[in-house]
């Protein structure tokens, strides 16, 4: 047996390097174009702006790797936020309990999605489209279509915008970013080191083969969607803290930003590919881009146009890379 083991870079690593490189390139370009870009306060703003999208897109990463998709995460987040406010303000439950119950609501929504998709074989797009509308409607019904303010709860905002680090080091890094980093680490660990992650990849790669190998496809798919719902709950926690209120009419549209982040980060619409770290980098690419354009006074309408073009370009690059193999 000869052992001419070739030393090649794993394709996943290469791809992540490309995305990270692009992110750094974008940062360099913006710092050259505007002196206001690479300031501490602006960096804090970018980090803060990434959090919600980052958390949502981690959830979607799981679902996409498993070969599905979830477009209900945005309004699910809204519903969770409204529920948190209702528990805390209307029912006067303790803040911690309210938040936990709100996250539970998101998980339940995810479980319903997962059950319908994995067990009842409703196509993911249809199921989550319906769920997107259901969540949107419920959020409006429950809140009476009016924002619910969290003023009664002391220091609710601290989670998002306060900074523990500032007290120690003087650098203003919002707390929320640590929640996101924590979630990233846990999600990454689950995906790479546990059977949950392994089966998610297996199902997305070749569902039939996974089934024939004795993998309980229904169960693991369902868990994937449940996790995605949980992430919506976390995002809602952060969102309500940042706005110090639950806004029942926001949230729609966030799912598309999250899907875009996943795709920039290398997740495949057809499943089997993707990573949490890639997705987080993808989320940063999007928020850095929007922040940079804003600093250069590009109107927000045009920011959206640019983001759209970047998503398409990222996927095109990936197609080229795959063809080149």
């Amino acid at each position: 047996m000869n052992t001419n083991k070739k030393t090649t870079i794993a394709p996943g690593v290469l791809q992540k390097a490309i995305i990270l490189g692009s992110l750094i390139l974008i940062i360099i370009i913006f710092s050259l174009l505007s002196p206001n870009f690479l300031t501490l306060s602006n960096i804090g703003g970018i980090l803060l702006a990434t959090t919600v999208n980052g958390i949502l897109s981690i959830g979607i990463t799981y679902v996409m790797i498993g070969g599905g998709c979830d477009i209900s995460v945005g309004t699910n987040m809204t519903l969770c936020g409204v529920m948190m406010a209702v528990f805390a303000i209307t029912f006067h439950l303790p803040a911690v309990l309210s938040v936990l119950l709100g996250i539970l609501v998101g998980t339940v929504v995810g479980i319903v999605n997962g059950f319908m998709i994995a067990k009842c074989k409703v196509p993911p797009f249809i199921q989550t489209l319906g769920m997107m509308m259901i969540c949107k409607g419920l959020a409006l019904v429950i809140s009476g279509a009016k924002p619910i303010y969290m003023d009664d709860i002391e220091n609710y905002q601290i989670i998002a915008t306060g900074s523990v680090i500032q007290k120690i080091t003087g650098i203003n890094i919002p707390n929320g970013i640590f929640i996101m980093i924590g979630i990233t680490i846990v999600a990454s660990f689950l995906l790479n080191k546990t059977i949950l992650g392994r089966y998610t990849f297996a199902i997305g790669s070749n569902e039939e083969a996974a089934r024939l190998s004795g993998v309980n496809v229904v169960k693991w798919k369902l868990i994937g969607y449940a996790l995605c719902g949980t992430m919506s709950g976390f995002a809602a926690w952060f969102m309500t803290a940042r706005l110090n209120s639950a806004q029942p009419s926001t949230g729609a549209g966030y799912e598309m930003d999250a899907i875009a982040a996943c795709i920039i980060g290398g997740a495949s619409m057809s499943g089997g590919e993707g990573s949490v770290s890639g997705t987080i980098i993808g989320a940063f690419v999007m928020s850095v881009l929007i922040n940079g354009l804003r600093i250069m006074s590009v109107p927000s309408e045009w920011q959206t146009v640019v983001t759209g073009a970047v998503v398409i370009f990222a996927v095109y690059l990936d197609t080229l890379r795959k063809k080149g193999k």
Binding site: R198, F201, A209, V215
Partner: peptide
């Protein structure tokens, strides 16, 4: 063939028997 292309050789052989 019934393999999962995105997984490694070992991961394919030991799918559902990881532990």
């Amino acid at each position: 063939l019934n393999l999962m292309p995105h997984l490694t050789v070992a991961q394919n052989i030991y799918i559902n028997r990881e532990n």
